[in-house]
Write a protein that binds this DNA or RNA. Structure first.
Lengths: 174, 174
DNA sequence: GTATTATAGTTTCATTAAGAGACTAGTTCT
DNA sequence: AGAACTAGTCTCTTAATGAAACTATAATAC
């Protein structure tokens, strides 16, 4: 078994998971948002209850991927802070999508720990919505998925696929 | 060490990760979307290259969490298909947020594998945008985060936190 | 009806990752 | 200088992962 990775999969989701899909990674990112984009080693450790060796490893992975960067507090010094890069800040929608899904489908309101608010109004941000290129809100039923293979792009499926005909399922490659 | 879990953390993100944060889980969900919401055991295994025992375990976790459900193909039969529930379909924005982040920040266009399109126009869905409650698009800089503790809600941080004063960082609890 | 194949797993075993806690080199404070 | 803190590393134990073999049932072929 080599290093656990989806890196060689031909899929942008797999590539994303290779960076943020490991155990602890998204919680570390959350703690950065929580701290205004800047955290230090012990701060992360205390806040998350993660063990030092795992934290070390995750910080290295995130740094290598360019999600955070190491910032020495004194030049030449060993002590440092870690700071979200633009790439790391761009994970905000991912985090919010997860939290909103969780809030809607499996958590009670009391389990909420952080809330993201608009500075201008103080209101919480709106639920993320899928939109078409021309700005209409779209639902699952308004979408279809295409797959890109060596032979170009081809439509794969529409929903909902009726489950009534088991034979029809045999023919679907993956 | 008990079963690896964030379940007892007081945080909706941790609760979400407890269900979809394990290795393979989101890729399994992707494969369901790819298959129109319906997949069978061997189909998932072949498509992902996951080993059977891990697939069995992930399907159980996802079923227990209500993300997918088991549908017998014949009544009383052992063979079944798995189908996304409404809770599972609601993961679409999470998946799209991850893919869009990956496409923008770390993948080449050639690494794309699936594309989600609007049925009406055939155009790809728009990038997810954070919006305020009254519908304005907002950026990171327009937001602040509050934390909910036993003592109610309190503002935590605004960005960007200047890194110039190391002493200022000592006072931030987490 | 019987043989064959496919399906949806389970079991076993080897390898890798995670977690707890002790330890450490360099920094900062007193 | 001495004490305390920071950001790790090291060691050891336990848990998760993966490959491959095995199994019970269901569907299909003969």
């Amino acid at each position: 078994m080599v290093k656990k990775s989806f890196g060689d999969m031909h899929c942008t989701l797999a590539q994303a998971l290779d960076v943020i899909g490991e155990w602890w990674s998204m919680l570390i990112v959350r703690d950065f948002f929580f701290g205004g984009g800047v955290r230090r080693f012990e701060q992360l450790r205390d806040g998350l209850g993660i063990s030092r060796n795992i934290l070390t490893e995750r910080l290295r992975t995130l740094t290598d991927a360019g999600v955070i960067e190491r910032i020495p507090l004194r030049e030449g010094g060993k002590r440092c802070a870690y700071q979200l890069t633009a790439k790391g800040e761009a994970l905000m929608p991912v985090m919010i999508a997860m939290m909103q899904w969780s809030e809607e489908w499996q958590c009670t309101p009391e389990q909420r720990f952080i809330v993201v608010r608009d500075r201008e109004t103080g209101e919480e941000v709106a639920p993320l919505e899928l939109r078409s290129a021309d700005g209409r809100a779209v639902k699952m039923q308004d979408l279809f998925i295409t797959a890109i293979g060596p032979d170009g792009e081809r439509r794969v499926t529409e929903w909902p696929l009726p489950i009534s005909e088991p034979d029809a399922m045999q023919s679907q490659g993956s």
